[in-house]
């Protein structure tokens, strides 16, 4: 345990409790940064969707309009940059975060994670009684988040491109003008709109899965994204942390 990531708190022996015949310990799985990024992302997706709906199909309030479209577009672009900041931050943590934030949690590159992925698929098909025992993300959730980040990256690129059309001399056009070699402006708008719906499809499933594992399997998933703590079998935590420490040692050599 000497090479443990600094952000990981050792499971405190004195906080260990016994459930049945199993020793469970509270463990700080989600770093403050991960939780901050998660809830910032929730907020920006809600703001972006509401403002995006207005931009796509504005309601007319009457009177002088109050500069509503200009204001809403400003908020939308601002929230878009917030979203990009979240994505960049998450990418950074995928390489610099604690063991449960790093990229092997998202892509099942290890044999054990692939076995857990199959287990999770079987769990959702009612073929396993309980989900795979993992401290951080289950591998299916990890893949779903890769898909989510991919969709949000599409939103970021098409969003910058749709800003770029206002000024073809700007850096935005230099960076994303190639998009319009592939798709016409209305088609880019359609893609931007559809991916928003795909994102909400993810949200519905994500909230359901979190509720399921929290309420039925008693995994403490929902509260963990607020406080960062999960109750996990002590052995399981030690196992994952020692494996992470071993990887760090290997990398240092």
């Amino acid at each position: 345990m000497t090479d443990m990531h600094p952000s990981v708190r050792r499971p405190a022996a004195n906080r260990e409790v016994v459930v049945g015949t199993e020793c469970v310990t509270p463990v700080k799985v989600w770093q403050p940064w991960i939780r901050l990024l998660h809830w910032t992302l929730v907020g920006t997706v809600v703001v972006l969707s509401l403002t995006g709906f207005y931009i796509a199909d504005p309601v007319v309030l009457g009177g002088d309009g109050g500069g509503l479209m200009a204001t809403v577009r400003f908020v939308h672009v601002l929230a878009g940059w917030m979203l990009i900041t979240v994505l960049v931050g998450r990418l950074y943590l995928a390489f610099a975060g604690n063991p449960w934030a790093r990229w092997p949690q998202l892509l099942p590159v290890w044999r054990e994670r692939r076995a857990q992925l199959w287990h999770t698929v079987r769990y959702y098909a009612f073929l396993e009684k309980h989900p795979a025992e993992v401290v951080g993300h289950n591998p299916m959730a990890g893949l779903a988040y890769v898909g989510l980040f991919g969709m949000l990256a599409v939103q970021a690129v098409t969003g910058i491109a749709l800003v770029a059309v206002t000024d073809r001399d700007g850096w935005e056009w230099a960076a994303t003008g190639w998009v319009f070699q592939l798709l016409a402006v209305p088609e880019v708008r359609l893609l931007h709109h559809l991916v928003m719906w795909f994102t909400w499809t993810f949200v519905v499933f994500h909230v359901y899965a979190a509720t399921l594992v929290d309420r039925v399997e008693r995994g403490g998933e929902i509260s963990s994204m607020v406080g960062g703590w999960k109750m996990m079998p002590t052995g399981r935590i030690e196992e994952e942390l020692s494996r992470d420490a071993a990887r760090r040692r290997r990398r240092r050599r």
Partner: peptide
């Protein structure tokens, strides 16, 4: 009218 939010329906 666009920036103001005034649109023909």
């Amino acid at each position: 009218h666009f920036d103001a939010g005034q649109f023909a329906l």
